[in-house]
Simulated scan of single mutants.
Amino acid sequence: MKAVHFGIGNIGRGLIGLVLHRGGYEITFCDVSSALVDAMNAAGSYTVHEAGVGGAVSVVTGFRALDSGMDPDTVAAEIATADVVTTAVGPTVLSRIAPLVVAGLRRRDPARPPLQVMACENAIGATDLLKSEIARLAGGDATTFRAVFANTAIDRLVPTQPSRDGVDVTVEPFFEWAVERAPFGDDPPVLPGAHLVDDLAPFIQRKLYTVNTGHATAAYLGFRAGFETVPEALADPQIARVVATAMEETSAVLARRHGLDAVELAEYRTTALRRLADPAIPADTVARVGRQPMRKLSRHERFIGPAALAAEWGLPVEALLTGIGAALAFDVPADAQAVELRALLQTRDAGELTSILTGLDGSHPLFAAVRALIVDRQASSVRGRMPSRAIRA
């Protein structure tokens, strides 16, 4: 069996590549980083270390790496004969991968089984997004290709890696990879440790609205308070309290929307908080976790997604608003979206910017509260200071 995976980052190596290797796939890793591609090919194998007492050590072999920017033709040829294509590149990059997948599908022998495509991103419906890009390039109908598309939900913390480790990667022991069952019919991919589910939405939103919301809230509050890492931020009682409350607010949304059990959600929150603050896992920086604030503030992402539903249903949103306010103050010059956000705050009307960032219209019950946060941030910028570090909720 053969898999093509886009993205040789930490998740690509530490979760997707590891599971594909365990499933017996020969893997072709694709990335636009020539240095990383060269390092992978030179190494010939890499080690996945699970942090903490009793953590497993796994060696991944049987792969090669290609520079998808420099050698798209070879990438397309690999896709033409692959069984599986996966991604872990970030949802904003999927549109750049779609042409490569289309080129590979056009070369594919019609007698081969359908290509199984899964975008493994921290976003709801990422595979649908990739499929729509493929359909656009194919003239509006992706079904003309011999391919099936399944959405997924992934969860594994992979913190900033020590540079001395090369292509080896350190991860937390916990992982979850849920995949839609229906698209595969009677021929699912071989993904040891992952599980096929009939309804993926609860898994995606439980992870996004709990782990990702909590992680981002800790990062933005930690940045505003001057902390370097997420565990340092969560060691602050005030920040820990806001993060825990924000996750309680999202759990209320999950319980109402999907009928999830309140006790099980409480256990999931406890596990998530323990994972985020685990001292055995190399500390993740608030700058890395907080990157791309505009994406994280978009309509169906980890803040506005649950907060909008909570506001519509009259549920609490105070801690989520605290996280949103802190995200607006994320000012990291090395992050392109943070720079863009700062420019928008300086040039756009607060109401207009609320719509741009959140996708909400003025009549939505959350709109006024977010607009007020933007007004406060704009006023703080004019005064030449960061917003107050006082933490609400």
Rank of each mutant, 00 (worst) to 15 (best):
V4P: 12
V4R: 07
H5L: 00
H5W: 02
H5M: 00
F6Y: 01
N10Q: 08
L15C: 08
R22S: 08
S34T: 15
A35I: 05
A35C: 01
V37A: 08
N41V: 14
A43I: 03
S45E: 14
G54F: 11
S58F: 09
G62V: 03
G62K: 02
R64G: 12
R64F: 02
R64H: 11
L66I: 10
S68R: 10
A77M: 10
E78L: 01
I79V: 15
T87I: 00
T87A: 01
A88H: 00
G90A: 03
G90T: 13
T92H: 14
G104A: 10
L105N: 07
R107P: 10
A111Y: 03
P113V: 04
P113A: 13
Q116C: 04
A123P: 00
D128H: 12
L129S: 15
L129M: 13
R136N: 10
R136H: 10
L137P: 12
A138Y: 06
G139E: 12
D141W: 01
T144H: 12
R146W: 08
R146G: 13
A147V: 04
V148F: 02
T152A: 14
V158Q: 01
P159A: 13
P162M: 04
G166T: 01
V169A: 07
A178C: 08
P183D: 06
F184P: 07
P192Q: 04
L196A: 14
A201L: 14
Q205F: 13
T210L: 12
T217G: 04
E228P: 00
T229D: 08
T229W: 06
D236T: 08
A240Y: 08
R241V: 02
E249K: 01
A252S: 12
L254D: 02
A255M: 11
R257F: 09
A262E: 15
A262L: 09
E267S: 15
E267P: 05
Y268A: 12
T271G: 14
L273C: 07
R274W: 04
A283T: 13
G290Q: 05
R295G: 09
K296C: 09
L297R: 08
G305K: 09
A308I: 07
A311H: 13
L315S: 03
V317R: 05
L320Y: 04
A327N: 05
A343H: 06
Q346H: 14
S355D: 04
T358L: 01
D361A: 12
L373K: 12
D376E: 15
R377T: 01
R377I: 00
